[in-house]
Write a protein that binds this DNA or RNA. Structure first.
Length: 420
DNA sequence: TCTGGGGTCCTAGGACCC
DNA sequence: TCTGGGGTCCTAGGACCC
């Protein structure tokens, strides 16, 4: 049996935990650049505010319903996520961190009564450690655990825990679910299924897997089998690390000049490499993406990328130099650029690289001592205390973030104040 | 006015080989 | 005029997730 543990309204709840005046109020969290809504408190959902709607379209609720608005604050959410995950790992075997606010765990071998007890215990402990609420769904497969989790959220009488033991009992529930609500089925596939007369999840479950594979793909076939209770998606081993890593953002205002884009890219490279260090990985290929704003139909559009191959390295200076070269290749003047980003791929664990491969033929010496010092200083005083020279300079690229709350848990200067 | 960011997996098709 | 076919590797792009 597999459990799916999921934080309720994660971003909005993180804001509420540190700002008690937000509790019980409709609240939305905005995307980078404050463009649209990416998270909502349950009160905001009740107002009918949809996921992804433009910020402008919810302004009316500020006056009429005291809607609260926050820019997204990933330092806070990331740190709260770690606290939740650590609590789960203390209490449950084989926890797989699936996303910032979700984890799977293996509960095989426990009786139904024991599972229920354990899941309620987990809920109380997470609530006590972090102030956040989680819902838990348990079933034979990951896909069914998602379904159970959905029920745990929707039916108050379950107190946040739904354990489905028999596949049979999912029949009526699946009948009321649209195919698009099943994990792994998005808009495109859902529409194609409708064309074949498959409208709900039960019909999908009962479709012929071989036919599904032929018409769609092996991916959807697995989903069908998973809905039948046949496990196709195993828990991932925790030591398997990520394969690629990216960092990029849209600019606060459009940029036309290469020299204005450079500092933004340097900043993203530094962010990406810091994460590379954290997981003790190195990269042997890097791609820089550069694009205009696709939503502005009246300007000339351009979306390009350029790649560079390297011998495996985690050296910030080398990687930034490579990224800047790629940017030069991709850049062409005459466009209003809106976004730049870097993708590090072919990641390998540093310990799997023979030392000799860390030597470099280029003029820039790989200097572990320097990198070590940069790492220590930035870990202690903040991520960009020591940064490549081109980070400084114009800051036109920085995103708007008008409503950001303090980094309560990760920055000494922004700790919450408690009045006794 | 404003239109997120960071991932994974799979497939199709081209290049190349024998 | 006829102009193989199967395997592998790589890449770009699609679809999905949160």
């Amino acid at each position: 049996m597999i459990a799916l543990i999921d934080c309720n309204n994660f971003y909005a709840s993180c804001e509420q935990v540190f700002q008690p005046q937000l509790a019980g109020k409709p609240l939305v969290v905005l995307s980078n650049n404050d463009g649209n809504v990416i998270a909502r408190s349950s009160e905001a959902k009740k107002l009918g505010i949809g996921m992804g709607v433009l910020t402008g379209s919810v302004r009316g609720f500020v006056r009429s319903h005291e809607l609260q608005i926050r820019s997204s604050n990933y330092a806070l959410y990331g740190d709260m996520s770690s606290r939740v995950m650590e609590t789960l790992e203390e209490l449950l075997p084989n926890v797989e961190r699936y996303s910032i606010d979700e984890a799977f765990a293996d509960l095989s071998g426990l009786s139904r009564a024991r599972m229920l007890e354990l899941c309620q215990h987990v809920r109380h402990r997470v609530q006590r450690h972090t102030g956040l609420q989680v819902s838990i769904g348990v079933a034979q497969t990951k896909t069914l655990a998602k379904v159970a989790n959905r029920l745990a959220k929707r039916r108050p009488e379950l107190s946040g825990v739904c354990i489905g033991t028999e596949t049979e009992s999912f029949g009526r529930i699946l009948e009321q679910m649209e195919t698009g609500d099943v994990w792994g089925i998005g808009r495109k596939i859902s529409r194609k299924l409708t064309g074949f007369g498959i409208h709900n999840a039960k019909q999908l479950r009962d479709a012929d897997p071989v036919w599904i594979k032929k018409q769609f793909s092996v991916v959807l076939m697995r989903t069908v089998l998973e809905l039948r209770g046949e496990s196709c998606l195993k828990l991932e081993e925790p030591e398997e690390s990520r394969k690629s890593l990216m960092c990029g953002r849209s600019f606060g205002k459009p940029l036309k000049e290469l020299e204005d884009i450079r500092p933004a890219l340097t900043h993203f490279v530094q962010n990406a490499v810091t994460r590379l260090w954290k997981y003790k990985q190195a990269t042997s290929a890097l791609t820089v993406y550069l694009s205009t704003n696709r939503f502005r139909k009246n300007i000339a559009q351009r979306s390009v990328s350029a790649s560079v191959e390297l011998s495996a390295t985690d050296n910030l200076i080398l990687l930034n130099a490579a990224a800047q070269r790629a940017l030069e290749q991709a850049f062409e003047s005459g466009f209003e650029y809106h976004k730049v980003g870097v993708l590090l791929h072919d990641l390998v664990s540093v310990k799997n690289i023979p030392a000799s491969l860390f030597e470099t033929e280029s003029g820039i010496k790989n200097s572990p001592e320097l990198m070590w010092a940069v790492r220590k200083i930035n870990a202690k005083f903040g991520r960009y205390t020591v940064a490549s020279a081109s980070v400084s300079g114009s800051s036109d690229w920085r995103a708007r973030s008008k409503f950001r709350s303090p980094a309560f848990t990760t920055c000494w200067n922004e700790l919450p104040l408690v009045q006794a």
